[in-house]
């Protein structure tokens, strides 16, 4: 019977609609690689240029030029990484014949923003109280939480990346003096590894 093909086709369509309507799959793997490169560059600048070397959680002398420099650097890295991700994902969405701004990307953003904004505010408060050493652990932990959250509405792999970031963040709380190394490992190297993995797993 020629119906079999139709039925199979119908099942495929149902499955594709279930996936497309519940998950944002236009996230680009390359965006992760770029974010990793920006992060590694940022960590290098923080260490060499800004002399960001906190030895303990409360250490005003970790930022000899004030917290402004490190804050600006962090924002610059964030803007570059997010900008690249949006650009590459928009291109990928276009190729897949989808809109970048749809029900699933809205949900992705919402899931991401709640932990990220909480972390962001906590970081600003910490800096204002000279808790400079908290910068590294807090960024890792809250970013990890938001990735874990987001794993439900995009590639599942992001959940495990989130857990890795949380663990690195917790470790960097204890080993404050190695903060930047943990930060470079989490935001730099892990982003590059996961970016390449997602690219090979889902984009070819």
């Amino acid at each position: 019977m020629s119906d079999t093909k139709d039925h199979l086709q119908e099942l495929t369509e149902i499955r594709s609609m279930m996936e497309r309507s519940s998950k944002f799959l236009s996230l680009s793997g390359w965006a992760g690689v770029f974010a990793g490169i920006y992060a590694l560059t940022g960590a290098y600048i923080a260490y060499q240029v800004l002399q960001f070397r906190p030895q303990q959680l409360m250490s005003a002398e970790a930022t000899p030029n004030g917290a402004g420099g490190i804050l600006l650097l962090g924002i610059a890295v964030l803007v570059l990484a997010v900008g690249t991700a949006v650009l590459l994902s928009a291109r990928k969405a276009q190729k897949r014949g989808e809109k970048i701004w749809n029900g699933t990307s809205r949900r992705l953003l919402l899931n991401m923003l709640v932990p990220l904004l909480t972390g962001g505010i906590l970081i600003l408060v910490s800096l204002s109280k000279s808790l400079t050493g908290m910068l590294v652990p807090l960024t890792l932990i809250f970013y990890g939480l938001s990735l874990f959250n987001v794993g439900a509405v995009t590639y599942r792999e992001l959940r495990s990346l989130g857990i890795v970031q949380i663990v690195l963040g917790l470790l960097s709380f204890y080993y404050v003096q190695y903060g930047l190394l943990f930060w470079a490992a989490g935001f730099g190297i892990m982003h590059i590894i996961y970016g390449i993995y997602i690219h090979y797993r889902h984009e070819r």
Partner: peptide, 11 residues
């Protein structure tokens, strides 16, 4: 219609 049902099944 099938598309609507598929999408609403997971949302």
């Amino acid at each position: 219609r099938l598309g609507v049902m598929s999408a609403l099944a997971v949302n």
